[in-house]
Computed example of a mutant assay.
Amino acid sequence: MLQLENGPRSVDVGGYRLHCEVVGAGAPLLVVHGGMGYGHRGFRPWLDGLGRARTLVYVDLPGNGLSDTPADYEEWSEVSRLSDALHRLRRALGVEHWSVFGHSFGGYVVQSYALDHPEDLDALIVSCSTSIMDHMDESMRQARIASHSEEQFEAIRANLLVPKSSDEEFDRITAQVRSAYFADPDFLGRDVPMPSGGSAAAFNATLRVWDNSDLSARIGELAVPTLVLGAARDWTFPVAVGARRTHGLIAGSSYHEFADSGHFPYVEENAEFLEVVTGWLDRDDEAHRGDAL
């Protein structure tokens, strides 16, 4: 098994470069952020604990973080452009195959990746996500409950899921709504810094992709071992129409729901999150070893 050297790197995937950060040792686990707009930095340091048993490959998706923005990025509207970038990244790194973790919008991207390039994956983890973006009414109902003021809810309802004209506007709206993403809003500021330096172009690309977001007709084709994670107080992807439904669509998938978290259970219930993910990956490894005997 190829052991990737820890540290940052910029990887040519054909026409542009993706930024990666490699942490840990063991079998590789690609970690794909949501958003889009801020890159992988929101995962750290909370997911670094997985590096005790896995080589984590944090990636900034095209146009995010320190990755290049492709020349035709403003025309991107299909999730396949993102899943293909991950496929080219694996080949460029020289990794034969890997497990893949995706959170939020990243969970949707990795589902597409698993469908388009199943030969790349040992296992799939889909965290606080969905297979089809058709639940805005329920999300807004839950957002009203999660919001800490009428002004915050109005910012979510009217200003969040619309194209942003500038990076400054993107950061400003994010700051207005961010605390509603946590069951315990004290995590924001105390343990979680407020994001800044985001990319409106990357966020706008997310909105274009969501317009073509239905994987539900294909997701039953998945044969890779899959863990689906949900959070009971996540208004962005309410579990009844998000994680639980995705679990039901993927035959043989495992499911775990975090009872006391909003959209970021890897922050709010970090110890349980690391235990669940590591335990499931270890069991999947043992199953593969058994199949090989």
Rank of each mutant, 00 (worst) to 15 (best):
V276I: 15
S77W: 14
R81E: 09
S253K: 02
S199A: 06
A232T: 10
R283W: 11
A85K: 02
V209K: 01
D134H: 11
E5G: 14
Q3K: 13
A146R: 05
L293W: 03
I145D: 06
S253D: 15
S179C: 07
E286C: 10
H40D: 11
D211A: 15
S199W: 10
L229M: 06
D68R: 11
R52M: 12
S166Y: 06
L30T: 14
V23I: 10
G107L: 02
P28N: 05
G24T: 04
E78F: 09
R157W: 11
T174Y: 00
W98Q: 07
D167R: 01
A114W: 07
A287Y: 08
R54T: 01
L66A: 13
V79M: 03
T69A: 00
S213M: 07
E272C: 06
R208W: 08
R245I: 04
S216D: 13
Q176M: 15
R17L: 07
V79E: 03
D116I: 06
V192C: 03
E168D: 14
V22Y: 00
A183E: 05
S80E: 15
G26F: 07
L82R: 03
L2P: 08
C128K: 00
A27E: 14
L229H: 14
L30D: 07
E169R: 05
A146L: 00
S147P: 13
A53S: 15
S99W: 07
F105C: 01
R44H: 11
E96S: 14
G262P: 04
S129H: 05
T226M: 05
F264C: 09
